[in-house]
Simulated scan of single mutants.
Amino acid sequence: MNRGEQIRRLRRTKDLTQVELAMLVGVSVTAVCEWERGAYSPCPRNAERLSYVLESDDLLTSLLEGHKKTRRLRTGRRGLTPLCLDLPTRGIMSGTCRSI
């Protein structure tokens, strides 16, 4: 089971919609949808929030290990800085992905 499937399974076990999970974690619905599809992984801050809401230490360990492996660098004004794959939190109802 990949990380996205793990997030979806835990969310459904808690009987939460993607909208509800997004509100509890403090991200957009699009971010939750992208995590469940496996397109992105949450940054460490959101991974901690997600594992807390879903009550899963195993999820946190898995997400943080994955983040270390896929960590990318970008050039900014101050040189190389970590790029967090966190999506903006504006407009919780934005996006086209819907929970089933």
Rank of each mutant, 00 (worst) to 15 (best):
T89H: 11
Q6V: 07
Y40R: 15
E55N: 06
E55Y: 02
Q6I: 00
S51P: 00
R49A: 08
I7A: 06
K69F: 00
D86M: 06
M1Y: 14
E34D: 12
E36A: 10
Y40F: 14
G38E: 03
S99H: 07
R3V: 02
R3E: 06
A22Q: 03
R74I: 09
Q18F: 02
T89E: 11
A47R: 02
T75R: 06
S28G: 07
W35A: 04
R72Q: 00
Y40D: 06
S41Q: 12
V32G: 12
P88I: 05
D57S: 13
L54I: 00
V25A: 00
L24T: 09
A47W: 03
A22D: 12
D58W: 03
G91K: 13
E55S: 08
E36F: 12
R37T: 01
I100P: 15
C43R: 09
P88N: 14
R74P: 05
C43N: 14
C33W: 04
G38M: 13
R8V: 05
P82L: 10
T13C: 11
T30E: 15
R45D: 14
L63I: 03
S28Y: 10
V25R: 10
G26W: 05
T75W: 00
M1I: 05
E34N: 14
R90P: 07
S94H: 06
R3G: 08
S41C: 08
E34S: 06
E34A: 08
R49L: 12
W35C: 09
V27G: 12
R45W: 15
I7D: 01
R3S: 02
L60T: 02
T17F: 01
